[in-house]
Amino acid sequence: MSFLAAVLDTLLPGDRAALPLPPGSGIGIEASDLPAEALAAIASEAGSEAAFEAASPATRTDILRRVEAKSPSVFQALLTAALMRYYQSDAVMTAMGWRTDPPQPKGRPLAATDAATWERLKKVKSRGRIWR
C-alpha cells in the first residue's frame, strides 16, 4: 500500500455493506488533488512516509489525530479536499443509494403529501386563532 493510499484509507476506510462504500484509495484520488503541506505533516509526524505505510491502522489513526490537533487548518484542508473528491464520486453516491446524475435538468421525485397528513392538518386549523 502506498503512502497516499494509507492516508486516504485511514480518513475514509469504506465498509462492507451490501452496497459497499469503497475505501478512499479506491476512487482515483491523486496526490495532486490533496494539499502537499498536509501530506508532508503526516509523514513528518510518522517519521517518514514509509513509517506511516508500515504502521498498523490504529497507529495511523493516532498519527492523523495528532496532526489534526497540532495543525487543525492544514488537516482540515486535507480532509475537505478528500471529502469533496470522495463524496462526489459515482461509486460512493451509488453505494449511498443515491443518483449520480446532476439535479438538473431532470429534477428529483418527491412524494405527494399523503391523506393522513392532510387529516392531521384539519385538527390544527380547528384550533382557531393563536396569533395576537
Binding site: L110, A111, A112, T113, T117, R120, L121, V124, R127, I130
Partner: peptide, 20 residues
C-alpha cells in the same frame, strides 16, 4: 409536496397537539 419527511413531522406535531 411535503413528502415522507413532512408526513413524519406532521405525525410528531400531531402527537403533541402542537401547531404546524
Amino acid at each position: 409536496a411535503l413528502g415522507r419527511l413532512g408526513a413524519a413531522a406532521a405525525r410528531g406535531f400531531d402527537k403533541l397537539g402542537w401547531h404546524w
